[in-house]
């Protein structure tokens, strides 16, 4: 970190998960409440590590911060219809993965304006939709799918239990006839049961 005379000229070095560093202005960085709480007063020696996020995500987040430096003070979430052309382009050029990464980073950095716009954007994706349409958007399994999955799992578990019980019974009979020592008998049965169960589970 440098320590120039004017705070608006301050540049901070940010470190991403790849270990790469890049510059962000003090004015942009101060939109992050996390940064304000952690570094503003005490300063930082060397790059500030935001290593949970990759370079592309952090650059995207701070691109937004740099842009909104000159905007009026944030006064609550805007409706999507009120977003500027720049804002709309900013969101539209992101793919789904980047969008989620940006939300997560913005949430961690506590950048109120960006986080609330992202939330509004997600809400807009779901607002006015019925259950079936929502399921398509948010990739949730339907109740029927969950129920069917649960039934299959229950059926598998019951069958596995039955097989294991039968195997234990057979093993017990066989090993008793051979008059093995007790410890060896227990171990042999346990091994057989495990093998049976594992082979069934793998099917």
């Amino acid at each position: 970190m440098t320590s120039p005379a004017s705070s608006s000229e301050v540049k901070y070095l940010i470190e991403s998960s790849e270990g790469n560093t890049f510059d962000v202005s003090g004015a942009a960085l101060r939109q992050s409440n996390t940064f304000n709480a952690m570094f503003l007063n005490i300063g930082a020696d060397g790059p500030i590590p935001f290593t949970d996020y990759n370079e592309a995500t952090l650059k995207k987040v701070f691109e937004y911060c740099e842009h909104s430096v000159n905007e009026e003070n944030y006064s609550g979430p805007k409706h999507q219809d009120d977003l500027s052309k720049w804002d709309l382009n900013f969101f539209n050029e992101m793919d789904q993965k980047m969008f989620i990464d940006v939300i997560n980073a913005s949430n961690f950095l506590d950048i109120e304006r960006l986080t609330s716009y992202c939330c509004e954007r997600i809400a807009r994706m779901l607002r006015g939709k019925n259950t079936q349409e929502m399921i398509k958007v948010i990739t949730l399994p339907t109740a029927e799918e969950l129920e069917a999955k649960q039934k299959v799992e229950e059926k598998k578990a019951a069958a596995a239990k039955k097989v294991a019980e039968k195997a234990a019974e057979t093993a017990e009979k066989t090993e008793t006839l051979e008059e093995l020592p007790v410890q060896q008998l227990v171990q042999t049965t346990r091994n057989k049961l495990t093998r049976k169960y594992l082979s069934f589970s793998n099917e």
């Binding site: 539209n92 992101m94 793919d95 789904q96 993965k97 969008f99 989620i100 939300i103 997560n104 949430n107 961690f108 997600i122 994706m125 779901l126 398509k136 958007v137 948010i138 990739t139 949730l140």
Partner: peptide, 13 residues
Amino acid sequence: MSQPLKLLHLPTL
């Protein structure tokens, strides 16, 4: 952004 959104994977806040 036409891919499905993993809503429940978002941070709680």
